[in-house]
Amino acid sequence: LELPVEQKILKLVQEIYGGAGVDYSPRAKRMLEQIHANGWEDLPVCIAKTQYSFSDDPQLLGSAEGFTLQIREIIPKTGAGFIVAITGALTTMPGLPKVPAAMHMDVDEQGHAVGLS
């Protein structure tokens, strides 16, 4: 955790995924500057990538080696306590509102679902 964010990402890419290096988009570089400025460097890192490959390229199936991971965006999730590096053309799911709709769902005494509207 004491490594800079860039080194954490590089270590994951090289030692876990089998890649050669990392390339950051201008947007990701700007976020790295904000992470350093706000003192969030000690947060753990999660890499969001395609499920088909250790790379960011879904065409490089399985355990590709020697690739350069393309980091498109870096999002600090300070409430959850980690940093997410988003790769390639990955689409992320939206977060939940403060009170998710599931909190208003239940089953009544007759076994009917309520709160689904």
Rank of each mutant, 00 (worst) to 15 (best):
L1N: 08
E2C: 07
L3Q: 15
L3M: 15
P4A: 14
P4M: 11
V5T: 15
V5P: 04
E6L: 03
Q7I: 10
Q7F: 05
K8W: 00
K8C: 00
I9P: 04
K11H: 12
K11P: 05
K11L: 09
K11A: 11
L12Y: 06
E15S: 08
E15R: 07
Y17T: 12
G18V: 02
G21L: 01
G21S: 08
V22T: 10
V22G: 05
D23A: 11
Y24V: 13
S25C: 04
P26Y: 02
R27K: 08
A28I: 05
A28V: 07
A28E: 05
M31W: 01
M31G: 01
L32D: 13
L32W: 06
H36R: 15
A37V: 05
A37L: 04
W40F: 14
E41L: 07
L43H: 11
L43Y: 14
L43P: 13
L43S: 12
P44F: 00
P44T: 06
P44A: 04
P44E: 04
V45L: 00
I47D: 10
I47Q: 08
I47R: 09
I47A: 10
K49M: 06
T50H: 05
F54S: 15
S55Q: 05
S55D: 13
S55H: 09
D56G: 15
D56I: 03
D56Y: 04
D57K: 13
L60D: 15
G62E: 11
S63P: 06
A64D: 15
E65F: 07
G66Q: 00
F67Q: 06
F67C: 06
F67P: 13
T68P: 05
T68V: 15
T68N: 07
L69C: 15
Q70Y: 14
I71T: 11
E73Y: 08
E73L: 08
I74V: 12
I74F: 02
I74R: 02
T78R: 02
G79Y: 00
G79L: 00
A80D: 10
G81T: 05
F82G: 01
I83M: 03
V84D: 01
A85M: 08
I86R: 07
T87E: 01
G88L: 02
G88N: 05
A89D: 14
A89R: 04
A89Q: 10
A89I: 08
L90K: 11
T91L: 01
T92E: 10
T92M: 11
T92K: 01
M93V: 14
P94Q: 02
A101S: 08
M103S: 13
H104F: 06
M105G: 09
M105K: 12
D106S: 15
V107P: 06
D108Y: 06
G111F: 01
H112E: 14
A113W: 07
G115K: 02
G115R: 03
L116H: 09
L116Q: 11
L116C: 10
S117N: 11
